Simulated scan of single mutants.
Amino acid sequence: MFRYFAENITFVLIKNKILNIKNRNIYVYAIEVILLNLILLLSLLGISILGKDLSCFMGFLLFFVPLRTFVGGYHAKHSEVCFAMSIGIYMVVMIIFYNYPNLYKNIIVVSIYILAIITFLIWSPLKNENHILTNYQYKRNRKILFGSIVINIIFFVFFSKMNYAIASYEIIFTVLASIFLIIGKLELYQNKKE
């Protein structure tokens, strides 16, 4: 669906001489990514509004998106699968929070959060054969990731001390990003093995 719309938009832009045809594949991919992310963000915002929980959307934007951007990890092969998985996982996150809003007070859960951060420090950013980074870009992303982790830890301590339940969302989204990293690492290992 997203690819179909991206191809049509690209076709119109090329036809009207706004874009150059020789870079068509790049434009199709870029427009597909923009459409996917825009519709996904609007959908997640809508789910948060319907669920009367905008703090989930804030947690997603503050904690998951920056980590996922610089950590890397598993990516679905098709944008529709990515969209469906993202919506499903987001709804599961809301259900977990609804049932356990005080996860940040549980020492076992906080330990899992710390383990997630350790996985970032060891394996991030994950080197992806489909998205090759130069050494400079890799080192830059690693520095940005470390800064992001430090900021997240400061937020977590602050939210926990102030008894703000958004600390639970921070835990959930951080652990979720680490799960995607681990799956991506396993997938990379499996591909090298074959």
Rank of each mutant, 00 (worst) to 15 (best):
V12H: 04
I95S: 06
E32F: 05
V109Y: 05
K185H: 03
A167C: 15
F70C: 04
L115G: 14
I166P: 00
E194Q: 09
F155I: 05
I182W: 09
G72C: 13
L186H: 13
G147K: 06
N16H: 13
G46C: 10
K15A: 15
S55W: 15
L38I: 12
S124D: 03
I144E: 07
N23M: 05
Y138L: 14
L67I: 04
T119H: 14
S86C: 12
L35T: 03
G72L: 01
L61C: 03
E7K: 14
V65M: 06
P66R: 04
I172R: 00
S148P: 12
F60S: 01
V33Q: 04
L186Q: 08
F158S: 08
K192A: 06
F63D: 01
K143N: 14
L62W: 05
V71E: 04
I183H: 02
S86E: 07
V65N: 08
L45Y: 14
E32Y: 08
I151E: 08
Y29F: 06
L38M: 03
F83S: 00
I171P: 00
E32A: 05
R140Y: 15
H78A: 10
I151K: 11
F57G: 02
G88L: 07
L121G: 08
K161F: 06
A177F: 09
N99C: 05
I172C: 00
N16D: 11
H75T: 02
Y164P: 14
L50F: 12
M58C: 12
R140F: 02
